[in-house]
């Protein structure tokens, strides 16, 4: 199973995904710059990703605490916190990019 991660230059990389892992953990495990300061507690907002519009319907709706963190992190309509997305086989091929805000946090 794979996640397609779009880089800053538009090129795509396939990351091996593991069922039950947080998408944040999969991205971080591959060495990409994502801080995830709070470790997945939905408390820091530094793992923000933008999910390809065609994949949005496959994701569960954000809970109130995720919306709150997105509020604080200049999210757009495609934004999610990758720590709140648990990878399942239905998400095989999930296409996303690390948000600019998260990249700035990691810089």
């Amino acid at each position: 199973m794979k996640i397609n991660l779009i880089g800053a230059d538009g090129t795509e990389q396939q990351l091996d995904a593991v069922e039950g892992w947080r998408v944040m953990e999969i991205i971080r495990d591959h060495g990409f710059p994502i801080i995830a300061e709070c470790g997945g507690a939905c408390a820091c907002g530094t793992c923000q990703v933008e999910v390809d519009p065609t994949w949005q319907a496959k994701l569960h709706q954000p809970r109130e605490d995720e919306l709150d963190m997105l509020d604080q992190n200049y999210a757009n309509e495609w934004s999610r916190l990758s720590c709140q997305l648990i990878f399942t086989p239905e998400l095989d091929g999930l296409r996303l990019r690390i948000s600019e805000v998260a990249l700035a946090d990691a810089a």
Binding site: E37, C44, G45, T46, D71, Q72, N73, Y74, D105
Partner: peptide, 8 residues
Amino acid sequence: LPFFGLTM
């Protein structure tokens, strides 16, 4: 006045 919380 932007109020978007804190970062580290």
